[in-house]
Design a protein around this nucleic acid. Structure first.
Lengths: 333, 333
DNA sequence: CTGTTAGCGCTTTCAC
DNA sequence: GTGAAAGCGCTAACAG
């Protein structure tokens, strides 16, 4: 096939290759002849062969955490992130290979590189547990090109792209206080994710000295269900006056909490203040609408892709966040 | 590398290949020797070379429609579908290559096959427009292995996996009538998608004879915003008695409509009945919760993948749907 | 600028 | 069962 193109154009196969690689300088005249011949014969270079010869698959792997039925991270988060990743990949001519971490066997990420299935990798649900940290450190030591998202792992700061979780929850808590709520409590995400802690720290940053050590912390797991389950505890805090508002670690928990508290007769904005985090679609759908913190996950994904594709190294700063004020946190007067 | 493994195991390279291909019969003894040698040297076959030699990339392409900022399809729909696709792919040893159709240039799907980037393809946002139909018919004629989802295209029935949209809306409309609502109206999805029409037909199926030609139809585009925008028209129908309930083509429009009507003073279940379609997360979040039709998009995706991977041909039936009754459609007495 | 010549790492006949 | 040898379709020196 390529041979015929070469013949037809009166050049060697190598020249055909050059034309399609767009790399080497080829005389414009020759170029045209080759392109014409190729068009006439309907020739398209075989990417697979090209990848093989170049020893680069051209694929950017995206590793999803194993999400059984429960969605580990909100679909909104996922979708936005993928959008950014996809854009960056497209811009740099990479294809996206979607990988899913399996429950038992974790087919080490390193394998994917050694198999040459991918040139770069983005990890989406990375946790800071020994097992995983070890694997990633090894990957880094091997010089693999990868990035992960919204997670801090000692020694791998150059591979992490993070939103400013801390500042986000700071803004949320500060806003509640400004609204006149007196004793915010925090609804925390699961351990294993550094952002669970970071968000709590941001919340604390906003507390006045007399509350610094005093506020309540409820433990959830970022799911709506966990928020729902915490409603009883939350109601007790409200009843006893230990809290009059909640900064939730994410929207899903906030939404669950709101729904649970409603069943117990408490209405946000009237009886308590509430904020979420992520500015997900759900925040807009709620009644009342949920005050939240927007973090550009699209940009986060784009950034991670750029790092994994080695077109850019880590930015110095965390990605910015913004408070989105809606009804749930406003104090009805 | 492979050579060393061969030497160390005292066999030829061909045998090493055989062991890792798991295909040819190799004496158990030899097999063990090779595996041992490979383990000691940390040898892993290069997938890229293997794919090249086999002339099969092992990739299942998933083509997403171009979704600028507005999400063409709900993220829920997408996520579920991907789950099913991913499961099937994993089960059959295929990797997922995520493709995104670009706005202007549609880099024909055929190219991906000719480049050998993919062995099979799933189209997620296929529309029945001339341009697209033509491309797909050509693809089919070329004998490419692909499948698309929730769309009917003449001559490509064997490549489509569909939910029973018609029955879904039939169930929804029937339920409203049983609840005592007298004049349901339909909120239709955008043209170009056969399911927009199918859902309308299902709705009609449920209408008693005297309403068959009489019911109102509002035109939306499957987005929440479009539902919101239709609230004025809907309110007018309610006011004039031309309608007292709405069967929406999907949840997003139903949610938008519910929100819009609320602003105008109409409450679902009290002032009108309402159903959605998709049983998305949002349906559960609403207040009141939204009655909807659940369609197993997970299964849809799985099915499509099996077809695209040629492990199975089209099932005779459309995938089943189920009514999920929640508050929005119940007549308050 | 262009042609020649080796491979890339694996699969796959075809003998033995 | 196993080995030898011929590619797969392209890239990448190296000459000229």
């Amino acid at each position: 096939m390529r041979k015929q193109v070469a013949e037809r154009a009166g050049v060697s196969e190598a020249t055909v290759s050059r034309v399609f690689s767009e790399s080497d300088a080829v005389k414009e005249k020759t170029r045209e002849k080759v392109l014409k011949a190729a068009a006439e014969l309907g020739y398209v270079p075989n990417e697979l062969a090209r990848q093989f010869a170049r020893k680069r698959s051209g694929n950017l792997g995206v590793m999803l955490p194993f999400v059984p039925k429960a969605k580990l991270f909100s679909t909104y988060y996922f979708y936005e992130m993928m959008g950014g990743i996809s854009e960056a990949a497209q811009q740099h001519g990479a294809d996206l290979l979607l990988l899913q971490r399996m429950p038992g066997e974790d087919r080490g990420c390193g394998l994917l590189f050694r198999q040459q299935k991918i040139d770069g990798l983005i990890l989406l649900g990375a946790r800071d547990i020994a097992e995983e940290r070890e694997e990633l450190l090894k990957l880094d030591a091997e010089g693999r090109s990868f990035a992960f998202v919204n997670q801090r792992i000692d020694g791998l700061e150059h591979r992490a792209v993070e939103t400013d979780h801390r500042r986000g929850c700071f803004l949320a808590a500060e806003h509640l206080l400004q609204q006149g709520w007196r004793r915010p409590a925090f609804v925390k995400g699961p351990p294993g994710f550094s952002n669970s802690l970071d968000r709590l720290l941001g919340f604390r940053d906003a507390m006045p000295d007399e509350l610094k050590g005093e506020h309540a912390v409820l433990q959830g797991n970022y799911s709506r269900t966990s928020g729902l389950a915490l409603a009883g505890e939350a109601a007790e805090l409200l009843r006893s006056g230990q809290a009059d508002a909640f900064v939730a670690g994410n929207d899903r928990m906030a939404i669950g909490l709101l729904q649970g508290l409603r069943q117990l007769g408490y209405e946000s904005s009237r009886d308590y203040g509430l904020t979420g985090f992520d500015d997900s679609d759900g925040a807009r759908l709620m009644e009342p609408t949920l005050t939240s913190v927007s973090a550009s996950f699209y940009e986060t994904g784009r950034m991670a892709a750029l790092i994994a594709l080695q077109v850019q190294s880590m930015p110095v700063d965390k990605l910015p966040v913004g408070l989105v004020v809606r009804e749930s946190s406003l104090k009805r007067t």
